[in-house]
Nucleic acid binder design. Structure first.
Length: 766
DNA sequence: CAGTGAGCGAGCTTCCGCTTGACTT
């Protein structure tokens, strides 16, 4: 056992570093934060200057015990947590929680996990930066105050178990406002004029495609223009050729990795992070939660060598990128392969694909620019001053494009690179075909998980370690949902001039189809407008950036953290109290119309368990009738007819084995009920129309499936069954499940043995 | 884990940022 104890945050890092340091050093990891405010209450003593009350959460007790044990043998403790605000605080908490003697503690930092970097760090120890720790405490306390004071207002005024926070509420706001933009968007159409020409004096099949520089507003204008083309002469009035360059994108950060994996591989941000974690733990990539585009000198040198060997010296261009984002803390390197020589890795398909993406992006970032030649030709015509433009692009040297090209969020346009035929000024052109095509302006696009992360990063909201959890939180709280949108068919006009004939036809195109986009839910919309009304400052897109500035001042020792929190908290808490008493219940209620049967009013609104429709008034003696909205329906869009249809359930679908079959929609979707048992409907089944035959089929299918997973069954009180589950056989009785101890044979177990396990199982729970 | 939804009142929910296993039915 060494005399030196080094503590880092990640166990994978600990393993690597241990190899670099001699036997005098033992390296342990603390697995991130080891203390925090208690989850169960505010844990901030406001009267004592916002004193935070920290505790060691139960899941961290084991880590603390381990570290204390390691501490006994150590003479010097090297606190090697990450070099950022959170890392500094972790070191401070370690000193506090482990009772480390300040005299024996040394704080060290390094940005790359290489032997020289670590030895250098050990040569330059420092003390814990208390100002930086204070900045972290301010961050922590602010987030707790906002989250734990605003959320309860939502429970009271909207629905229990909702949440609000500095980060998540702004993420929801982005989604809600984007939806509003889309709703108020009115597509405008214009006519795009394209022409196909033959170049005089060249072979028959040499043609030139060009587009009119200007779009024409109306059909009439377009027709008039085409008419003018009939007798017109066309010629090349100018040709300009310019060299152009394209540069590679910087290596990956967490956010850009999530975006590219989403666009190129179709991964959700959670999937990307899971696969990246696997690659990191097996030592194949560097740390995956980073905001830095920095590459180590070793990585730069290796990339150079790999590129020289694979593609040749003229493909090399070594670059060090600098981070543009102001909020970046740059405690780590960019995400890159640990060993750039390795072009491929073993593993499952996802690991291979993500690694491939990371390898290509990293290598491309160190390759030379692509050199292009762009040609623009102007075509004039005798009957109109409007110019046609033809664009061509030739790749002279592919450079980094040999390996990798970054994708964009925009839909594919029709501006692919193409070559122009040889042209010179004065060349005469024969008109083959001129076409006016009606085009529509595009509404803004809904966010994908990854494009929302991109937006949040631009606003400086959230951190690499929280992007994926934020996306999951807003969906778990049912503020937003990821879904596809069916497109619709739209008519457009196309007018074609060929020879002297002009034809107009109405064509159809699909539009508005979207896959895997984030849509706001009714609850998300209501919560957002409530928060916008009462807590505009927190909902401000610049709120985080503004408080970050103050945290920086605290970190720089120019401001006291308790003062900063006080000046935020005083008006904020006042607003909390005021909102609690002033604001009414928010249900997002919308009047849909009158029920023709009862003559009562029909509303859609948010109920205790989610969106509902209601017939009749809440006030008064008579109880209103309620029905929950179905998946895909919203308060905003549901019609009176759709709302009334929801009251047709539960309905009788027939009978089976002398018992009635009823159909209804529950919390988990549509179901058939028979003799007290529930059977879920399939995707293709409609609860409003399902036949008796189909309902019976569903019941029998479920019975058969249950039969198949049953290993043994014991009659008697209580009935017990041994079932096959995802994690092996288990015992089920009285609606509870119990594990079977290792070594028992589930086939040969007796009822008594099962009862024994059940009684022991329930004892353990107490 | 399944038919709720008013209102009463018990007790509960909730934040952001750092890190991975232990655990599951």
């Amino acid at each position: 056992m060494g005399k030196n104890l080094v503590i880092v945050e990640s166990p994978a890092k600990a393993k690597t570093i241990e190899k670099f340091l001699g036997s005098e050093y033992s390296v342990k990891s603390c697995f991130g934060h080891i203390r925090d405010l208690s989850k169960n209450n505010l844990s901030i003593d406001i009267d004592k200057g916002f004193e935070p009350e920290y505790e060691i959460p139960p899941e961290k007790r084991k880590v603390i015990t381990e570290l204390k044990k390691a501490l006994k043998d150590a003479e010097v403790v090297w606190l090697a947590t990450d070099e950022d605000r959170e890392g500094e605080a972790i070191s401070w908490h370690l000193v506090q929680a482990l009772n480390i003697d300040q005299g024996n503690a040394r704080r060290i930092v390094f940005h790359e996990i290489t032997k020289p970097a670590i030895l250098e760090a050990i040569k330059n120890p420092r003390q814990i930066d208390n100002h930086l720790v204070d900045a972290q405490q301010a961050r922590r306390v602010l987030d707790r105050l906002v989250g734990y004071e605003v959320s309860p207002i939502l429970w009271r005024k909207i629905k229990p178990a909702l949440s609000a926070g500095r980060v998540q509420s702004v993420a929801v706001r982005l989604i809600v406002e984007r939806e509003e933009e889309i709703r108020s968007f009115r597509a405008e159409s214009s006519f795009r004029i394209t022409g196909l020409f033959r170049v005089a004096g060249q072979k028959e099949d040499v043609t030139l495609e060009a587009e009119l520089a200007k779009r024409l507003k109306t059909r009439e204008e377009a027709t008039a223009f085409l008419e003018k083309c009939i007798g017109a002469e066309f010629q090349v009035s100018g040709v300009e050729t310019k060299p152009a360059r394209k540069s590679p994108a910087p290596p990956f950060t967490t956010s850009t990795l999530q975006q590219e994996a989403s666009r190129k591989l179709g991964f959700s941000v959670a999937k990307t992070m899971m696969v990246a974690q696997q690659l990191y733990e097996s030592g194949r990539i560097t740390y995956m939660r980073t905001d830095s585009v920095h590459l180590s000198n070793l990585a730069l040198a290796t990339a150079k060598k790999v590129i020289a060997e694979k593609y040749g010296d003229n493909y090399i261009k070594t670059r060090q990128f600098t981070t543009r984002s102001k909020s970046a803390q740059e405690a780590h390197e960019a995400i890159r392969p640990t060993y750039l020589e390795q072009e491929m890795v073993t593993g499952d398909a996802s690991q291979k694909r993500l690694y491939d993406l990371i390898w290509k992006r990293t290598i491309a970032s160190q390759m030379s620019e692509a050199i292009l030649e762009k040609t623009v030709a102007e075509i004039s015509q005798s009957n109109s001053p409007e110019l046609f433009i033809a664009r061509g692009e030739v790749l002279r040297f592919e450079g980094f494009l040999k390996v990798y090209l970054e994708s964009t969020d925009e839909e594919e346009g029709d501006t692919g690179s193409k070559m122009l035929p040889p042209l010179k000024q004065g060349d005469r052109l024969m008109r083959q075909l001129i076409r006016a095509t009606e085009r529509f302006s595009q509404s803004p696009a809904r966010y994908t998980e990854a494009s929302l992360v991109k937006k949040l990063e631009e606003l400086g909201i959230g951190r690499p370690s929280t992007y994926a959890p934020i996306i999951s939180t807003i969906q778990k709280r049912e503020y937003a949902e990821k879904k596809d949108k069916e497109g619709s068919v739209r008519n457009y006009t196309q007018i074609t001039l060929e020879g002297n004939r002009m034809d107009s036809e109405v064509k159809q195109e699909r539009t508005g189809y979207e896959k895997g986009k984030l849509f706001p839910t009714d609850i998300g919309t209501v919560v957002n407008s409530f928060l916008m009304k009462y807590f505009e400052n927190i909902m401000d897109y610049h709120f985080t950036a503004a408080v970050e500035k103050e945290f920086d001042e605290i970190a720089g020792g120019r401001k006291a953290w308790r003062d900063m929190i006080r000046s935020f908290y005083t008006p904020f808490h006042q607003k909390v109290k005021e909102t609690m008493s002033v604001s009414g219940k928010q249900s997002g209620e919308r009047l849909l119309g009158t029920d023709p049967v009862s003559g009562k009013k029909v509303y859609a609104k948010i109920g205790r368990y989610g969106p509902i429709v209601q017939i009749g008034e809440s006030e008064g003696n008579e109880k209103p009738r309620f029905a929950g909205l179905q998946k895909g329906q919203s308060i905003e869009e549901i019609s009176l007819g759709q709302a009334l249809a929801l009251f047709n359930l539960p309905r009788k679908a027939g009978s089976y084995e002398d018992a009635e079959i009823t159909v209804a929609i529950g919390r988990f979707g549509p179901y058939v009920r028979h003799q007290g048992q529930f059977y879920s409907l399939g995707k293709q089944d409609d609860p409003y129309t399902i036949s008796e035959e189909r309902a019976i089929e569903i019941i029998e299918q479920k019975r058969k499936k249950d039969q198949e997973r049953t290993i043994r069954q014991f009659e008697g009180e209580p009935p017990i069954s041994i079932l096959k589950g995802k994690y092996g056989p288990y015992i089920s009785s009285g609606g509870k499940n119990y594990r079977i101890p290792k070594g028992s044979d589930p086939e040969g177990m007796t009822r008594e043995e099962c009862l024994d396990i059940i009684s022991r199982g329930s004892k353990r729970k107490k």
